[in-house]
Design a protein around this nucleic acid. Structure first.
Length: 344
DNA sequence: ATGGTTTTTACTGCGTC
DNA sequence: GACGCGGTAAAAACCAT
């Protein structure tokens, strides 16, 4: 078996399209402005009215700069960089302001949550009283509870993302994804996660879902797109199946046929022939312990032969990921069963 | 852990293009 | 000579116990 694990650690770059809002407004070309205006601006800087030489007063509320003597409006439509509300004490300021620390997508909640520190100090670094310390300890307990509950939801989100990613890599339908997430949710709700990796369980859930839905993928295929290695994945799978009591029938060889057939680009006729071969073989009880994948591959090869199609064992071997030896052995058994079943 | 079964690996010869 | 195919034996992997 070629278990050179071709793992794809796709560390997806976080797509941040933060467009910095350009705050510059007004004329950008300096030389177009008339001389008088530039002169006036100069005067503004000196807080002197260019007309009468009186003092200028800036009224941020109206966005104007006005001469106190002659009433000349020197500049209007200024940009007010302050908040549009006023606050008279710090409490009110806290209530009214709508901005805070910049958010980051590196954290699940964009860094908006906070956490109660472990030090028994207040915001100024002073030690707390015994009574306060007790109070803080209780708060910490609840803070922790609150956050771990959230962590479950976070895990679920991550797991569903993984399932989504793997499923599309394997070309599995929406239906299978749904099934997989149901399985995962069950595992999560039964507290099966602690001590196990999210990815492992997610992979197992997807694998189980694919088999249940009659569109199985081999362990190798699933492991190739998973972030966990094959060992862990299989262990997780066994665990999930056992704990959840999932009833998963051993995969049927003909469930593999459509996919292999399309991968190989063989005709419908060949595929139908292969299916027929499998059916008669099943009546003879040929597949007992034989790998269904090998059987399906052999059936396709034999089917191609019987329908006069050019197809090499190597090609089938490549598509189904079984050795040519296995294909040879199986397809001969298939043909034998066919001759016995349908006497010429 | 062990034994029985299946699959794979590696190597072989044969025939054909 | 390369290629497809068939066969074989030993090694490896798998599965139930």
């Amino acid at each position: 078996m070629e278990s050179q694990t071709i793992r794809t650690y796709t560390t997806e770059p976080t797509r941040e399209t933060e467009t910095a809002t350009d705050a510059r407004t007004g004329p950008s070309t300096e030389r177009e402005r008339p001389e008088a205006e530039r002169e006036r601006e100069k005067g503004e800087d000196e807080l002197v009215c260019p007309e009468c030489g009186g003092r200028l007063e800036h009224d941020a509320g109206h966005g104007e700069t006005v001469c106190r003597e002659c009433g000349l409006v020197v500049d209007e439509n200024e940009i007010d960089h302050g908040p549009e509300w006023r606050a008279f004490d710090s409490a009110e300021r806290d209530r009214k302001k709508r901005t805070g620390a910049p958010t980051t997508r590196m954290m699940h909640d964009k860094g908006l949550s906070s956490q109660i520190g472990w030090q028994n100090k207040d915001a100024y670094g002073n030690a707390l009283s015994a009574r306060k310390r007790q109070q803080m300890q209780r708060l910490r307990t609840w803070d922790e509870r609150f956050r771990t509950r959230n962590s479950k939801e976070r895990n679920l989100k991550q797991a569903l993302g993984e399932i989504e990613r793997m499923a599309s890599a394997l070309g599995l339908s929406q239906d299978v994804k749904e099934t997989a997430s149901v399985i995962y949710r069950r595992a999560l709700s039964e507290d099966m996660l602690p001590g196990r990796s999210i990815e492992g369980i997610a992979t197992a859930a997807l694998y189980a879902a694919a088999r249940q839905s009659g569109v199985p993928r081999s362990v190798d295929e699933v492991a190739a797109v998973s972030r966990v290695d094959e060992m862990e994945f299989k262990r997780a799978y066994r665990y999930v199946v056992r704990e959840l009591g999932l009833e998963i029938a051993p995969p049927n060889p003909d469930e593999y046929l459509p996919r292999f057939a399309s991968d190989l680009g063989v005709s419908n006729e060949t595929e139908a022939r292969a299916r027929e071969l499998l059916r008669t073989a099943a009546e003879q009880g040929i597949h007992s312990g034989k790998s269904p994948v090998g059987l399906a591959a052999a059936a396709l090869y034999a089917g191609a032969l019987l329908t006069n199609r050019q197809i090499t064992q190597d090609e089938v071997s490549e598509a189904a990921d079984v050795s040519t030896v296995t294909i040879r052995n199986r397809y001969q058994e298939l043909l034998e069963a066919q001759e016995i079943g349908v006497p010429a």
